[in-house]
Simulated scan of single mutants.
Amino acid sequence: MHVVPLPALADNYIWLMHDGQGQAIVVDPGDAAPVDAALAQRALRLRAILLTHHHPDHVAGAAALRARHGAFVFAPDDERIHGVDHRVEDGDIVSLDAPEARFDVLAVPGHTRSHVAYAGEGVLLCGDTLFSLGCGRLFEGTPAQMLASLDRLAALPGDLLVCCGHEYTEANGRFARQVDPANTALAARCAEAAAMRATGRPTVPVPLASERACNPFLRVDSDGLVAWGQRQAAGNRLERFAALRAAKDAFRG
């Protein structure tokens, strides 16, 4: 399966996946235009649309694409998402014949209450729950929910490619270096991301193993983050995570 990040809106990525027979899936199409252009350029037929959560920058193009291409829409069970053919929930399997693909559905609340991720075909389609070197803001969920969601994603196979919803890696890296300054893997990832962006390349997808080594939100139990938490008077891992997310919200570096 070929995996292509399509830049959209200000800093979103729509994920296009296709096989060698011209059959395609898109994930979180916040704008239909980049998808239509990519389908035409590659002579692809859109068969399915996967949605991770209800925010407009992830779903606004889905209705037009469904109408134009007859694509089948999968989405979480949330009344705020319209034009859905099949509602998915934790433990479901999305199985497609064309393209031949299979994804496990994981409930990952925190950014929103009904957020899901799709894992399969070598990728982790995680929307705005997990970013490279960061995680999503807690718009509807609690720190405990988001930490549990990130723990769940971090436990998946390390060779899965993280396909997240935004190009935030450089900004996330600046914060991460502040809270985990001794992390050499993080320093290398930040340098890699800067080089990629300097030449206009996306910094994702990235292996989940890299995120486990570099992303402070997946490293709340590491020595570096424990030491940082002690300085914030955050004694346990949930307190550390909550303090970390609050610090990121306030960070202006």
Rank of each mutant, 00 (worst) to 15 (best):
V94I: 15
D104A: 14
R102S: 15
L125H: 02
G120R: 07
G122Y: 05
D85I: 08
V108N: 03
Y118N: 06
D85T: 13
L106F: 02
D92N: 15
L106K: 00
I93A: 11
L106T: 00
D104I: 03
H115E: 08
H111Y: 14
V105D: 03
A101P: 04
V116F: 04
L124W: 07
A119E: 08
V105A: 09
V108S: 02
G110C: 09
L125W: 05
A119G: 08
L106D: 02
L96R: 08
S95R: 15
V116Q: 03
R102C: 09
A107Y: 01
L124E: 12
V84H: 01
C126Y: 06
R113H: 10
T112N: 09
L124N: 07
V105C: 09
E89N: 07
E121C: 13
H115Y: 06
H115W: 08
A119N: 07
A119I: 07
V94D: 05
L96G: 02
E100I: 05
G127I: 06
R102F: 11
V116P: 04
H115S: 12
L106E: 00
V94Q: 03
V108P: 04
R102T: 15
F103L: 04
V94L: 05
D104M: 04
S114D: 13
A117I: 05
P99Q: 07
C126R: 02
R113M: 01
V105G: 04
E121A: 12
S95D: 14
D104F: 00
P109K: 01
D90E: 12
V108I: 15
E100P: 05
C126Q: 07
G120I: 12
S95K: 14
A107S: 15
G127Y: 06
Y118G: 03
V105H: 01
A107E: 04
D85A: 07
D85R: 03
S114A: 11
A117F: 08
L124R: 06
V108A: 02
L125G: 10
